[in-house]
């Protein structure tokens, strides 16, 4: 099966990458962009999704500063 994990900065954590992108969009003429957050997408092919949550907590995300969600995509 294929699992997709989305990792992103926790709410309220400063996100310099997101801020830089937010600053760059108006420069290209895209107005009205209020916030941008940049995260990380991780796709894995696995035999079972049993351990995905543990993988997220122990390695894929740093729970101190990041939150994650995951789904089975196929």
């Amino acid at each position: 099966m294929k699992v997709r994990v989305l990792v992103r900065p926790k709410e309220g954590i400063l996100d310099p990458q997101g801020e830089a992108v937010r600053g760059a969009l108006p420069a290209l003429g895209f107005g009205g962009v209020k916030t941008v957050h940049v995260g990380r997408l991780i796709e894995m092919e696995l035999e079972s999704a049993d351990d995905v949550d543990a993988m997220c907590r122990r390695l894929l995300a740093n729970p101190t500063v990041e939150e994650y969600e995951w789904e089975v995509v196929s």
């Binding site: 400063l14 310099p16 500063v65």
Partner: peptide, 9 residues
């Protein structure tokens, strides 16, 4: 804690 990216990028 954690070390995040420098605010000035």
């Amino acid at each position: 804690g954690a070390l995040l990216q420098n605010t000035h990028m």
